[in-house]
Simulated assay, not measured.
Amino acid sequence: MENVVLDATDRRLMALLQEDADMPIAALAERIGLSPTPCWKRIKRLERAGVIERRVALLNRERLGLGVTVFVAVRTAHHNEEWLTRFAEGVAAIPEVVEFYRMSGEVDYLLKVVARDIPDYDRIYRKLTKVAELHDVSSSFAMQEIKSTTALPLD
Rank of each mutant, 00 (worst) to 15 (best):
Y101L: 05
A115C: 10
D155C: 06
L64S: 00
R102C: 02
T129Y: 03
A88P: 02
L13G: 04
N80F: 10
T76E: 03
K130W: 09
A92L: 06
L13Y: 09
V5G: 01
V70Q: 00
S139A: 13
S104V: 09
R31F: 06
P36Q: 07
H79R: 14
L13H: 10
L111Q: 06
F100L: 07
R75C: 03
E47D: 07
A115L: 10
R45A: 11
Q18M: 13
L13N: 08
S148L: 06
R126N: 11
L17I: 14
E89G: 03
V137R: 02
E133D: 15
D108T: 09
D108G: 07
G105E: 08
D136S: 14
V68L: 13
R126S: 11
E99A: 15
P24W: 04
V56E: 13
Y125D: 11
E2Q: 14
G105R: 10
A77G: 13
A73Q: 11
L152W: 08
E133M: 13
C39F: 10
A27W: 02
V107F: 01
A92W: 04
A142H: 13
D122A: 14
L84F: 12
L28D: 00
A49E: 03
S138V: 15
L13C: 10
I94D: 06
E106V: 07
A49Y: 03
V56N: 09
H79M: 05
D7S: 07
I25D: 01
F87D: 02
R45F: 02
D155G: 12
A92Q: 10
A88K: 09
G67R: 11
I118T: 08
M143L: 15
V68Q: 08
S139P: 01
E99C: 06
Y121N: 00
I146K: 10
I32S: 00
V51N: 02
L110M: 15
R12S: 10
G90P: 12
L111H: 03
K130E: 15
I118L: 14
V4S: 05
R61H: 09
T9F: 02
E82H: 12
Q18V: 04
L154P: 11
D10L: 09
